[in-house]
Design a binder for these strands. Sequence first.
RNA 1: GGCGGCAUAGCCAAGUGGUAAGGCGGAGGCCUGCAAAGCCUUUAUUCCCCGGUUCGAAUCCGGGUGCCGCCUCCA
Length: 465
Amino acid sequence: MSLRLFNTLSRMKETFVPLEAGRVRMYTCGPTIYNFAHIGNFRAYMFEDLLRRHLKYRGFQVTQVMNLTDVEDKLIRTCRQTGEALKSVTDRYAKAFFEDLDTLGIERAEVYPAATDHIPEMVELIKKLRGHGHTYEANGSIYFRLSSYAKYGQLSHMDMSQLQTGASGRVDTDEYDAEDARDFALWKAWDEEDGDVYWETELGKGRPGWHIECSAMSMKYLGESFDIHCGGVDNMFPHHENEIAQAECATGKTFVKYWLHNAHLVVDGKKMSKSLGNFYTLRDLLAKKIDPLAIRYLLIGTHYRQPSNFTFEALDAASQALRRIRDFRIRLAELRGTGEDLAGVCAACETAFAEAMDDDLNVSGALAAVFDFIRDVNKLLDEANVGADGAANALALLDRLNAVTGVLAPATEAAVPQDVLDRVMERQQARRNKDFARSDALRDQLLAEGWVIEDTASGPRVKRA
RNA sequence: GGCGGCAUAGCCAAGUGGUAAGGCGGAGGCCUGCAAAGCCUUUAUUCCCCGGUUCGAAUCCGGGUGCCGCCUCCA
């Protein structure tokens, strides 16, 4: 079975066939680095991480590009208000962004181009569009003339004549000098509010419009046509439509083959907002001592095109699920001797897992296969039929599937302190002496300190609570 | 006002025409000195509501209700 992905262009699942055999080039819309990213943002990056990991699992060589938007209206406003230099703000939040990616186990993309490092590329692209007659100038700014591109709206399937200007309430249309409010800026002429944020270019003194960076940088690193472009559903219109218009009007080629959009995250069934008190950055959750892998588990657990409901109850369930996985790995790692090689159950699990993932990244189905496997193997372990060889096969399988999901790794256990080990031994001695009052007291005491004691056939096992 | 998506158990969540995956939680049992872990049984006669199509609908169609997204720089 081959990988099928839901393409927004066709609104259908399509068999994935890359432009170049064995290789995937993908562009994923990245953050505006003017603040800490919130868990809704991370849902998008998590989905893209899952996609790249599965592509790699399926043997593709992946080149992923994620932009960092480091010049933009809000950013300039912030700098104006605080007096801090643009670069200083963006450096700080870029650093925080990468720390957060590491915390969540999100793999690094191959390239993270920043907009301000690619002004010449954007200027070149705008010049090309101007040469092809797709632009006009007004008060020093350069706009893209939408009416010059008949295919506009192909992605969002929007009927341009039905759009209500300013309906979102997000834009003060008076700010625009465009001939038609639907035209968008490619290059914005400098004005006083921009302060020292400007570039002197052939297009004049100013700064790029937001959409142009993605067209310019994606084509620079991935070519004029590439395989996959991802982003949140909110970016479908107008951002991605504009990217298509800019790229295809400049090159005359198809820009992107597969467009993938992730649905949003809600918290307790409601839109995340500061006024509702349900707005969380990753750092907010870490401050609550939440296991970042539980956040990863939760974010990954809902199919990317379904709205996901983030609740603390679900987060707790995710922690418990991780514990089950980790305990299972501990149990396997302790096995000695020889026995059942588990080849059959391993193969069945991997097939079911891969088929689910191939179906537009059905990660819920894939994880269900893993839990079926865990239950089946636990049963065999209870029957004492498995040895180190079978355990090695099972652990190797978990490692392979962990490379895709990132939630099947062993617990990172710090060494157990000697005084804890001493008391475990003391308890064991008390048990041999049938002094259960003493042994239970020691167990309670250790539990209160965060250590769980489990008595197994081969002796006591110590774990973090 | 226009366009699009979603609604499945206490919670999270698969399934999109053939009789409800999986995880968490709850209940009972096995194991255990007692626990924990693990295993077994159980927990939605039913998939937001009302109609319709069909031998058959959570799945298709129509109408509601609710939530979410977009309508010119929000993942």
